[in-house]
Amino acid sequence: MSDTVLAVDDLTVHNHLDDTPAVSGVSFELSAGEVLGIVGESGSGKTITCRALLGVLPDLFEVTGGAIRLLGRDVTSLTEREWTQLRGSRISAVFQDPASYLNPSIPVGKQLEEVLRVKNRLRRKDARAKAMELLAAVHIRDPEYVYQQFPHELSGGMLQRVLITTAIAPEPAILIADEATTALDVTVQAEIIDLLADLAERLGLALIVVSHDLAVVAQLCQQIIVLRGGLVVEQGATDQVLFSPRHEYTRLLLEEHHRFGLERFLTSTEPRP
């Protein structure tokens, strides 16, 4: 397994605020180009897991057990300075509500350029050219135009595209997408999912896709972890989780789709229309 980019072994995060474990016993391995899905509801510990992986746990939360090996290096005891070098460069993330991660008074292209200058150490002119190239690579039709827009002038889907571009600009090995498509229209959500799949394939980017919706995760992932109350209730290959779930909770998540989703109308053997 020489291409393992992230190995998490029995991760435990403790919540000192009410002295309870926030997450316990999370283990997985992720290779380049591979996609892992983490499914769970608010309070399941999925965001805390991501924040532990990014080294940005909130105050009073602490990794108290297990190991996180990022590109072969144990990162559980890194200093803040060491994290600053890794975060963004080797492991990056995008979240729900992209507008809140951008400065409202600076054109989005400038903000992308800033990342390229700081993280990639490019000069102003080179950074601008690279920004255009990257915006085109995420299928933005008119990069020049989008570059000059302020966040409020762009749609949620377009902003998320810009944030994904910003996140992958320093060419990280791993990208975490935490509910990155949640607030979007279904058709736009599919665009972003397609983009993420394309990035994993084309760049060999390893992805962690976090969602409350099992079906969103099923579109992309080879393996799935279902979290509930900070515990792993189900883990396995996507097909196994979807078609022979072991835990009652996973069955409930599937039941919703089978009863109220498109599934009951689609004949599974036929391709989509």
């Binding site: 058709t187 079906a215 099923a218 789709h257 599934e263 599974s268």
Partner: peptide, 8 residues
């Protein structure tokens, strides 16, 4: 675009 359990 609707996510279904069969991978899209």
């Amino acid at each position: 675009s609707a996510p279904t359990l069969t991978a899209g």
